[in-house]
């Protein structure tokens, strides 16, 4: 289980924030693009998203996620305006300047509420590293206006004490699990239970989002990770289909030939003397 602390960008007008995503080593240099997804997890606030002054997403609804965008690596100025704003001028609701997207990085920027209920933009680096055959990676991100939570899967606590805006990951056997989110250290269910599909060879990211007023919900995102092959293929235990050496009668025939030749050769040699 590892714990990553992303840099939280608290709400603000036109603050200049430089964010550095850690490039995923396995993917760095592989191409010149970066992959970016945007999640909208601020309840009841449709927005337009602008990147470098250009409108990227129009009328972006709470609880929705963009499909992965392949963007040229570089720095991006992100700004959120109310969905009814005419253009990307004036004071944004939220902004993040100079968000650095290195080549090969896979990141999700979440617009969400802080624990105190203030809007924030938080970039997360998605783990695309390889998982073992038959397994998937589960990443849980706390982006709700709520205190620390525990995450339970199949009734057992798998992540404990997760706080906004942090994340935790673990690898699990692929399949469907019933998960819920409870207030840390309690049995008080905040969200769920919900059935989650944990895809093999992928990272399933679960966001706990919302607020006490608007309600708490889960959002999910699946990011392809490196799938692995099984370590081998078994296949038999009795030896009935084995490639044998030469069958015994043929071995016998060969030996008989040798014996005959030896006998005759000896007789021939003796007769010459």
């Amino acid at each position: 289980m590892n714990k990553t602390r992303p840099i939280a960008l608290t709400a603000g007008a036109a603050g200049a924030f430089a964010l550095l995503f850690g490039a995923t080593p396995a993917l760095a240099d592989s191409h010149t693009n970066a992959t970016l997804s945007v999640l909208h997890a601020v309840p009841e606030l449709p927005v337009d998203v602008y990147a470098n002054g250009e409108r990227l997403i129009d009328d972006f609804q709470p609880g929705t996620l963009t499909d992965p965008l392949s963007l040229p690596a570089g720095a991006y100025d992100l700004a959120l305006f109310p969905a009814d704003a005419a253009d990307g001028s004036g004071e944004p609701l939220l902004s993040a300047m100079g968000v650095e997207l290195p080549a090969g990085a896979d990141a999700t920027v979440a617009a969400h509420l802080t624990e105190a209920g203030e809007p924030a933009l938080t970039p997360f680096v998605n783990d695309t590293s390889e998982v073992a055959a038959g397994e998937g990676r589960l990443t849980v991100r706390h982006v709700a206006a709520a205190p620390a939570v525990d995450v339970r899967a199949g009734g057992e606590v798998v992540i404990d004490g997760l706080t906004n805006p942090n994340e935790e990951s673990l690898t699990v056997p692929a399949g469907t699990v019933s998960a819920d989110v409870v207030l840390a250290g309690t049995d008080t269910v905040a969200i769920g239970p919900a059935d989650l599909s944990l895809t093999e060879g992928a990272t399933t990211i679960v966001y706990a989002w919302g607020s006490g007023d608007a309600g708490y919900e889960l959002a999910t995102q699946t990011v392809q990770a490196g799938a692995s092959a099984p370590t081998g293929v078994p296949g038999g235990s009795a030896g009935l289909a084995a490639d044998e050496g030469m069958p015994a009668p043929l071995v016998g025939l060969t030996l008989a030939g040798l014996a005959g030749a030896a006998f005759a050769g000896r007789k021939y040699a003796t007769s010459r003397v």
């Binding site: 250009e54 929705t64 996620l65 965008l69 963007l71 919900a194 999910t220």
Partner: peptide, 15 residues
């Protein structure tokens, strides 16, 4: 020029 963006509901779905 930014690529066209598609969005989807992020609520959990069971595959």
């Amino acid at each position: 020029g930014l690529p066209p963006v598609t969005t989807r509901d992020a609520a959990p779905t069971v595959a």
